[in-house]
């Protein structure tokens, strides 16, 4: 007997959609074709790529995808990239930094044009994720292009209408290296953004250029007594330093989640 479709109220529908996302990883990952539908330059060396991926199952903020390129002679190579925004139907966004002498990123950032296809596998990774039903305050600490999965968390917070207070500490070389500059200049209510420049600062600027220090995390983060969830993403050395500083400030190890990206890269 055929049953008529049930029109669910919005809240319940949201829960069902959430359940679908939660269940989505419960399948083995396959490579699928992704077609480039849009490009936005973030800096002179980084750009955001928007892909259409038919049948995309949805994803959690902080998850990543693997991208595979295959040459005409059959040689193929793959890299991981963080998803930069919540899914919009079948559309996903990655932000890719060009690594000089890299095998994949120069193609993605300089050669690829709208309409071209790559193979994509994901979403993958269930550890370095933020879920909007979480109520703990959040500290995000980004080193360079490590800001990408953290931006996905900020955007997921907005999409879900969450009021959880967020603080983002974004360590980067100088003002020209800022990703998502317009969006981070005017953060949502309840979100604080602090730029920590390592090489050159705007003029004038209260903090001299330099690497992240204990004071930066003490002033721009949350007291450990607030029990914030801390997400740290960046190059390996940066992540190790920040994680150690957070432990020094009394944050519990189980509340510090880290993601390193590395030298194998590009």
């Amino acid at each position: 007997m055929e049953r008529p479709p049930v029109e669910r109220p919005p809240v319940e529908r949201a829960l069902v959609e959430r359940a679908l996302v939660e269940r989505a990883p419960a399948r083995r990952a396959r490579w699928t074709a992704a077609r480039l539908t849009g490009i936005r330059d973030e800096t002179p060396t980084a750009r955001t790529l928007r892909f259409s991926v038919p049948g995309w199952p949805g994803h959690l903020a902080g998850q990543h995808v693997d991208v595979r390129l295959t040459a005409e002679d059959g040689y193929s190579t793959q890299r991981s990239y963080s998803l930069a925004a919540p899914a919009d139907g079948d559309t996903v966004e990655l932000t890719v930094e060009r690594v000089p002498d890299g095998e994949v990123s120069p193609y993605l950032t300089e050669v690829m044009e709208v309409g071209d296809e790559v193979e994509l596998r994901g979403p993958v990774g269930g550890w370095f994720v933020w879920r909007p039903e979480s109520t703990a305050p959040v500290l995000l600490v980004a080193g360079g292009s490590g800001v990408v999965p953290l931006m996905a968390m900020l955007r997921e917070r907005r999409r879900a209408g969450s009021r959880v207070p967020f603080r983002l500490l974004y360590s980067l070389r100088g003002p020209d290296s800022r990703y998502y500059a317009d969006e981070l200049r005017r953060p949502d209510p309840g979100v604080d953004v602090t730029f920590l420049y390592t090489r050159g600062t705007p003029d004038p600027w209260p903090r001299p250029a330099g690497r992240v220090r204990l004071d930066d995390l003490a002033e721009g983060g949350w007291p450990s007594s607030f029990e914030p969830d801390c997400y740290v993403c960046g190059p390996t050395g940066f992540v190790e330093t920040v994680a150690d500083l957070l432990l020094t400030l009394g944050h519990a190890p189980e509340r510090i989640r880290t993601e390193r990206f590395g030298p194998t890269g590009g």
Binding site: A29, S80, G262
Partner: peptide, 9 residues
């Protein structure tokens, strides 16, 4: 080194 997140795929 990277970390175990890179094993996800």
């Amino acid at each position: 080194h990277l970390d175990g997140n890179a094993l996800a795929g």
